[in-house]
Design a protein around this nucleic acid. Structure first.
Lengths: 69, 69
DNA sequence: TTAATATTACCGCTGTAGCAGTAAAAAAGC
DNA sequence: GCTTTTTTACTGCTACAGCGGTAATATTAA
């Protein structure tokens, strides 16, 4: 039930991509505060901003529900 | 590259759970507008609100990146 | 060690997501 | 058919996420 640590994953991928928070923010078209918040697991971020950051890092999202066909 | 249709998935799961948009919104603790926007694939929703809705529907999220361990 | 870079943390300000309310259009039930 | 429920769509209003700027702390490199 506990939320998985997305922030650390983002940070890890960013590091391995050789990017700073500011660079990642610029690439994703968001502010540096947003990248910082994501890595700190703040759930107050906007969905589209999170998507933009994940896309830069090539992180895919999969949704699995009881009725996933 | 195209975004997968999360809105339809949410709607489908909601239907199969026998919930109306309003009921789902109340269960998730968000407004009806938010549920409506999610099903319409508006990416402007807040991350925490999306999480709350998915949790009610038992939809899990998985992140898969190049460096996922 | 010192210097340069990166991260964390705050600050106002602004834009807008979220809200409830309303109403009209669609869908479901009778 | 008609009635009820649900969904869609719009409206002000409010709260706060996001923004850049700044500064302090932490990290890295030289």
């Amino acid at each position: 039930m506990k939320d998985f640590d997305l922030g650390s994953m983002v940070k890890d991928h960013r590091k391995k991509a050789g990017l700073t928070q500011l660079e990642l923010a610029n690439l994703a078209g968001v502010g540096k505060t947003t990248v910082f918040d994501i890595e700190k697991n703040k759930e107050t971020v906007h969905w589209n901003n999170l998507l933009a950051v994940l896309q830069v890092l090539n992180i895919k999202i999969e949704f699995k529900g009881p009725f996933t066909k």
